[in-house]
Design a protein around this nucleic acid. Structure first.
Lengths: 337, 337
DNA sequence: TTGTAGGCGTTATCAG
DNA sequence: CTGATAACGCCTACAA
């Protein structure tokens, strides 16, 4: 079914059908109705490929997600959901590309061949090949997270360094002297994953400024790892009375290990961090944490991308969010010696 | 950058470039290399829209997911991940449509206008408008889950009825007489969501056949709901000594409530069900459960869809999986009276 | 207010 | 083995 067939049946020319559809030229109410009747009858929709070819844009954006084999974290899922939602709201479709490296077939397919008008990238590393690649192509893009040197790129991120610093200050104010950072996995740190590095940066900075005793641990993104992490911590560093974490997926394990060791939170041990709200509220007792505003971040990323598509030469904006730390029930005064 | 420019620079015709790329016609090694050199230099990729227009297919499939505002369950996420992965493996792109109802804009956009070669639908209801709509359009589609009357449609699903029956038999064999079903939410049941209905069907069938005492409960998809569900159950039905569930998201809450009530699993209370493996293994003690093979299901859905796209007139296949029930540590003999 | 015609970038048919 | 050319379906200047 194509526009010519509609035109034929309605007894008008193809351009009239086109204009009746787009409204870019006045069309008599009567002919418009006749055309609409035929369209309704045949359930006609303009061919997207033809339109894209003619107009030079696809009304589709690409969303590059971590390889699907890795289980997505709740936060990543939050980004995907909010990006998809915001895009749908702007009548845009979203093309998904699960890819890690620069030379991924799926990634190449999506960014080349004009399949999309722009790209949103997540899980950004400090040095990220995909960003470099995208800069070379000239395709508009926005990153959720930012590289070590983000000048000239458009991004939205959470200020992990500041948030973790604040958590440490909060714990220090409560009298804690030995504080641990439960970071993301050693692999992510090694790969130069931004949030992990920035959390560490904020942690060591705050520890130093307050003259505290800091312990840093890496921990894989799952409950089991959280469990062994706490066990190790209590064994190797009994002087530690509090922890800050950016590893939300480890929280259930952390909780389990503390319970099993008969450590009462916050009486015996305090914990705070950065996490999706859902994880913080499911922790027992509820976790004092900065809730990562995934919904807002995804929506902003789409918004920034649309601006960038509309005006590619405009200077790049970015958004560094510092959401408030919700005081819940997991932090309290340091236990007396 | 287009094929004409490449042809000009390589001193050949456009068709030669095209054939050098697709290999559908022999091209001298020498010219092929000259062409490739120009392509590499200019980083040329064929325009996807032009190709789709000419070839009549997009090499893209649509994946309809529940509205993004609802948090996706782990199982849904598993489907998305495996579909995306399987599609990437077949060099297909995936267009995401977050939509619930039939008249959703995003849904309409994706299925009409030849944006995709086929569609995968998830979260199927017993009566599902989207399925009807898709049948009308004639676009190839596969559903994960199936409608009440799935004849002529192509689907892959888990046999909830049989699995829940088997769980009940298993518990009955262990001496349990009072058994509860912890189902999905009342809203989902009311909306005619298949797995919820089929779980109930399998449950009541098994309870009747064994002459047991069955209690059915609905429970929202989150930990908090699981907690109150167990509290209610123990209060209203103290005679119940075991439960079966299809509500994986409620498991952490179920566990918490049982622990708090000082109920030891499986000594005092047994529990079994259907869940993604990850949830079953995170339960303490680990949950005796049929692990929903999300990865396999997503991959099969893509495979079926590809067959269907290749041969639309072929009779519709389907796949009803009955994964084995992994005996873990959460079921044991009924406590003595 | 409506119609005609050309071109977007590819692929495939038909000649050479 | 290679080149010219005609579609694919749409949009939009230009002409009426």
């Amino acid at each position: 079914m194509n526009i010519g067939e509609i035109a034929r049946r309605a007894g008008v020319s193809r351009s009239t059908v086109s204009y009746a559809l787009t409204g870019k030229r006045p069309v008599t109410e009567q002919t418009k109705q006749r055309i609409q009747a035929v369209i309704d009858e045949l359930d006609y929709r303009p061919n997207a490929a033809a339109r894209a070819l003619k107009e030079g844009r696809t009304r589709t954006i690409g969303l590059v997600i971590p390889p699907a084999s890795l289980r997505l974290t709740d936060m990543q899922l939050g980004f995907v959901a909010s990006v998809v939602e915001a895009a749908a709201h702007a009548d845009l479709d979203v093309l998904l590309s699960p890819s890690g490296g620069d030379h991924d077939r799926s990634f190449e397919r999506v960014i080349s061949g004009r399949r999309v008008d722009g790209v949103i990238l997540m899980e950004i590393r400090l040095e990220d090949d995909r960003v470099t690649r995208l800069q070379r192509t000239g395709l508009p893009f926005v990153t959720i997270g930012h590289t070590a040197n983000p000048h000239g790129t458009c991004w939205v991120d959470v200020d992990y360094a500041t948030l973790i610093s604040r958590c440490v200050y909060h714990l220090a104010d409560l009298g804690h002297r030995g504080i641990a950072l439960i970071n993301r996995s050693a692999e992510l740190v090694a790969a130069g994953y931004g949030p992990a590095h920035r959390a560490l940066e904020g942690f060591t900075g705050a520890i130093t400024r307050r003259g505290l005793d800091g312990v840093t641990l890496t921990c894989a993104d799952d409950a089991a790892a959280g469990e062994t992490c706490i066990e190790r911590l209590r064994e190797d560093h009994p002087e530690v009375t509090a922890a800050v974490t950016v590893n939300e997926a480890a929280l259930p394990g952390i909780q389990r290990a503390l319970e099993r060791a008969n450590v009462t939170v916050p009486r015996d041990f305090s914990i705070a961090g950065v996490a999706a709200r859902h994880w913080a509220e499911d922790f027992r007792p509820q976790l004092t944490a900065a809730d990562v505003p995934t919904f807002e971040m995804g929506a902003s990323a789409v918004e920034l991308l649309l601006e960038r598509i509309a005006a590619p030469e405009t200077p790049a904006h970015h958004l560094l969010l510092t959401p408030p730390i919700s005081l819940r029930a997991s932090t309290g005064p340091a236990p007396a010696r």
